[in-house]
Amino acid sequence: MADGQATTTANGDGKGLTYPMPDAPAPGEAVEVARGVLWLRFSLPFQLNHVNAFAIRDGEGWTLIDTGLRTPDTVAAWEMILAEGLEGRPVHRLICTHMHPDHIGLAGWLCERTGAPLLMSRLEYVTGRMLMAEEAGDAPEDGALYYCAAGWTEAQIERWRADYGGFGKGVSPMPRRYLRLSDGDAIEIGGDQWTVVVGSGHSPEHVCLWRRSDDLFIAGDQILPRISSNVSVWPTEPQADPLGDWMDSLARLRGLLPEATLVLPSHGEPFFGVHARLDALKRGHEVALKRLERTLRQPSRVVDGFPAVFGRAVGDGVLGMATGEAQAHLNYLERRGRATRTRDKDGVDWWTAVEQDEETT
Rank of each mutant, 00 (worst) to 15 (best):
M1I: 07
A2W: 06
G4D: 13
Q5A: 12
A6F: 00
N11S: 12
N11L: 11
D13Q: 08
G16K: 06
L17D: 03
L17K: 03
T18V: 07
P22C: 08
A30T: 14
V31H: 13
V33T: 15
S43Q: 10
Q47L: 12
Q47N: 10
N52M: 10
A53N: 10
F54W: 12
F54N: 05
I56E: 04
R57Y: 05
D58R: 10
G59E: 11
E60R: 11
L64M: 15
L69V: 12
T71P: 03
D73K: 13
A76Q: 15
I81A: 15
E84H: 08
L86R: 14
L86I: 09
E87C: 06
R89T: 06
I95Y: 03
H98N: 13
H100A: 14
H100G: 12
G105P: 05
G105A: 08
W109G: 12
W109M: 10
W109Q: 12
L110W: 02
C111W: 03
E112D: 15
A116T: 04
L119I: 00
L119Q: 07
M120E: 07
G128E: 03
R129W: 01
L131S: 02
E135N: 05
E135G: 02
A139F: 11
A139C: 14
G143C: 01
A144N: 01
A144M: 09
Y147M: 14
C148T: 15
C148V: 05
G151I: 02
A155G: 02
A155I: 03
A155M: 03
I157D: 02
E158H: 08
R161H: 13
G166K: 14
G166A: 11
F167R: 09
G168P: 01
P173W: 01
P175Y: 00
R177W: 04
R180A: 14
S182V: 12
D183E: 12
G184C: 05
D185W: 07
A186W: 06
E188H: 08
I189L: 11
I189Y: 12
G190C: 03
G191V: 02
V197G: 08
G199Y: 00
E205D: 15
C208V: 00
L209C: 10
R212E: 15
L216Y: 03
F217S: 06
G220I: 06
Q222I: 05
L224Y: 01
R226F: 02
N230T: 14
S232Q: 13
S232R: 13
P238H: 08
A240V: 05
D241Y: 02
L243H: 10
D248R: 15
L250T: 07
R254F: 06
R254V: 00
A260T: 13
L262C: 10
L264R: 07
P265S: 11
D279A: 15
D279H: 09
A280F: 02
K282V: 13
G284R: 13
A288W: 02
L296T: 00
Q298N: 13
V302G: 08
V303E: 11
D304I: 01
F306C: 03
A308W: 01
F310H: 04
A313E: 15
V314E: 07
V314P: 02
A322Y: 06
A322H: 07
A322I: 11
T323S: 15
A326P: 01
Q327T: 15
N331W: 01
R335Y: 08
R336S: 04
G337T: 04
T342S: 11
V348G: 08
D349V: 03
W350A: 08
W351N: 07
W351Q: 09
W351I: 02
A353R: 09
V354D: 01
E358Q: 09
T360Q: 14
